[in-house]
Structures are given as C-alpha cells and as structure tokens.
Design a binder for these strands. Structure first.
Lengths: 210, 210
DNA sequence: CCCTGGAAGTAAGAGTTGCTAACTTTATCC
DNA sequence: GGATAAAGTTAGCAACTCTTACTTCCAGGG
C-alpha cells in the first residue's frame, strides 16, 4: 500500500475496506464510555458508529475486554504525557513541579471521568495485562522522578518510593472523590492548586516521614 | 404459615412463595460481584441462585441498576459500621482512633474488593441517588467527628472539614491502589497500621495545615 | 366461611448483545 | 496473474434485560 503515488503514508482515510478500524473503535468506545458511563458501552454500538458491521471489530480485538484494555492503554499514555508536561512547567526539583503532576492527574480525571473510572475503577483483568501494568508503572515513574529530584535522592531510594506512593494515593483518592460526589475541595474554601501544593509540601518537606 | 407456634418473627425461611427475595437477591449479587467482578453479574444468574424465575426480581427492583444500588447501600451501611467500630477501639480524640477508622476502610476494600469497586468505582447514577448520597455523608461524618475530637474543634469547623477530606482521600486512594495493583505499602517496608498512623499524625498534628 | 384484592410468583416473548462460522472482497507477493 | 492472507460481510446461537399476561397464594371484610 506504500508504493502507490503518494498520499498513502497514513492509511487513515477511506481505504477500500475501512483503513484503520481499531483506532477508530478505540475512539468510539472512548466517546461512549464518556457519555454513557464505563459500562454503558457495547461493541455493537461502537461498531455502528464506526460504520462497520458488528462482527468487524473481532478482526482486531479478541473480545470486548480487549477493546476496553485498548482504550485504557491509550488513556494511560495520555495521562502519563499530561503528567510529564505538568512537571515540565516548573523547575525540576521544585515542590511546584510535584504539585503540577498531581494537578495534571486530577485534571485528567475531571475532563474524562468515564475513562478514568474505566482505567482505575473496574479491574476487569487490567492488572493482569503486562502492557497495562507497564504503562501504570511508567506513570508512577513520573511521580517517583519528581519526588526524587525534590528530595535530592536517587529514585530507587526507599524514602522516595514511599513518598511517591503517598502522593499518588492522595491524588488518586482526591480524583475519585471529586468525580464521584462532585465534592470539590472548594467546599472547604481551598482550590485544587493550593491544596496540591500544600499536600506535596507536607509529604516531601519537613512533613510526613515514613 | 405465620400463626404456627412461634419462630416466625422474621419471615426469612421457606414462605409459600418465597418470603424475602430482595434481601436474598442483594446477598446473591454481592457474592457474584465478589467472585466475578463488578460487572460479571447478571440479574438472571442471581435469580437462579435465589431459586426464582428470572422475572421475579423485577417485582422488587425497577431494573438492574436498582439492584446494584441496593447492594451498594447495604455495603455502605456495613462500611460505616466498621469505621465506627474501628474508632471505638481507641480513646476518643486520639490519633490512633483516626487511624483505626482508616484501617477499617482499607480492610473493607481488601476483603470485599468487588463491592468496594461497585460502590466507588462505577458511578452508574450512584451519586444521583439521595439515599446513597446520605449514606456516603454518614460515613464521611465518622471521619469528621474523629478529626474534630482529635483537634479539639467543632465538627463544622472548616479546618476540621478540610482535614477530614484529606484523610478520606488519602485512605480512599490507598484502598484503590492496594486492590488494583496489589502494590502493598509493604513494598516500601511499612505496614498498614504504621502507615495510617503516620499519615493521620501528619495531617492532624503539626503537619499539613490547610 | 367465602370471596375478592393484591402481592409475589411464573412462563413466554421481544429486542439487544457478545461472539463464532462461513463466505466475500481487496491488496500484496511471488 | 494467481495464491494468500487481511479485513470486511451476513447469518445465527446463546444469554441477558425487561415487559406482558397469567397464576398462585395470603389477608381482611362482609
């Protein structure tokens, strides 16, 4: 398909059969999950939206769960990228950089609560998939590196690991609570950024020692 | 069958038709969710286990989602009770009492990860149900009261509310992470109890101020 | 004591879904 | 220019949700 004249670098558009289902399926499912909740999706409906028969997706995915895993994997990549971008907006080693990573996490959960729930809420064998596990570890690695830079310790230092875990669980819980109950921290007259900076300082600074 | 000698205070057993489906359905669904994951349940299978036809449950629940909500409601009651029991094992106002509440929370998530996910993972209109919202607030209230006692402030004090929210999100995130990835805090050579006490002290003590 | 009303069950069925099997179309490779 | 394989189609089965119409059993009033 590549030695034809040109305009075929990406197999994206209107190929004979379809071109790139799989990517289109993942996009469709992401939309469905976002609008109808994590379980309010069906492969039939997603196929319908992609304009193919309901059996077509099974040429690209083994079953329903594998489609979900595809969506989660793609979401994890975007989440990690957002975290890295957040960290890059502040000087390396600063507490603000750590807080920015947390803010990216929370923002992701807020703007895509459906996929966020899908990724972390139901298990579905997510944690049994080595690929997804690796992506999760990669995302965690962003926190670890920021914490390490902030503390001036190597990333594999146990204290760094413990602090990173605390930060992660804090932000993870905050994310879930905000999208669950709409209970914003604002109800306690604190906005997200101040909250996250406070927490990061408390855990990494003179605060909580593990 | 009720005016026989006695032993009929509870209509539990072998009534003519059935007696108390609804309770039995909730129990069956809880089991299914626990063994097959939050979405690996069907009302048909639950009805089968309860020994009734697949249409019977619809005499007691409007639809599938309402059954789920019933399970979540029951779980919330048990969770709150466990938290209260945890708090009662240590002197009121002590940091240990706060940590005990957190431990009860985490223990619940560990022993019933399926229903925990069901309760907090998928939304499904859970937060739109006023009954479930109330139960959630009740559980949060346990944390608030413990934090207030510990800080020597009234429960409606903003600082108390902020601290309670921090504690909750911390424990919530920790619970999710442990059941998700089996990443125990043990990997950082800290056990749960020490971890929770440390965190509670950090947030309530001289530590993080909001 | 019957009988009527309603609560709680059943059976049957429509519509949707997950997934498979068998077949067709299209691009590529030798 | 065919064989091959990838990627699509239709048809269909089993399971599931939920509805409708019917049945069974208990309870209270005359």
């Amino acid at each position: 398909m590549t030695e034809h004249p040109a305009a075929r670098t990406v197999p994206a558009r209107t190929a004979y059969h379809h071109g790139d289902l799989r990517a289109q399926m993942i996009a469709a499912v992401r939309d469905l999950v976002e609008t109808h909740g994590p379980d309010g999706f069906s492969v039939a409906e997603a196929a319908r939206r992609a304009g193919v028969s309901s059996a077509a997706p099974y040429k690209h995915f083994r079953d329903r769960a594998e489609i979900l895993r595809g969506v989660v994997g793609e979401a994890m990549d975007r989440l990690r990228a957002a975290m890295e971008a957040g960290a890059a907006t502040y000087p390396a080693g600063s507490v603000e950089a750590v807080a920015a990573v947390g803010l990216a996490y929370v923002s992701f959960a807020r703007t895509e609560p459906g996929v966020f729930r899908l990724a972390f809420g139901l298990t579905e064998g997510h944690e049994n998939d080595p690929d997804l596990r690796a992506k999760g570890e990669d995302a965690f690695g962003v926190v670890v590196r920021c914490a390490a830079a902030c503390l001036g310790l190597p990333p594999d230092d146990p204290h760094v690991q413990a602090c990173a875990y605390m930060l992660w669980s804090f932000v993870h819980g905050h994310s879930f609570l905000t999208i669950d109950s709409k209970r914003s921290v604002a109800s306690t007259s604190i906005d997200d950024w101040a909250y996250l900076v406070t927490v990061a300082r408390g855990i990494l600074g003179q605060g909580i020692r593990a």
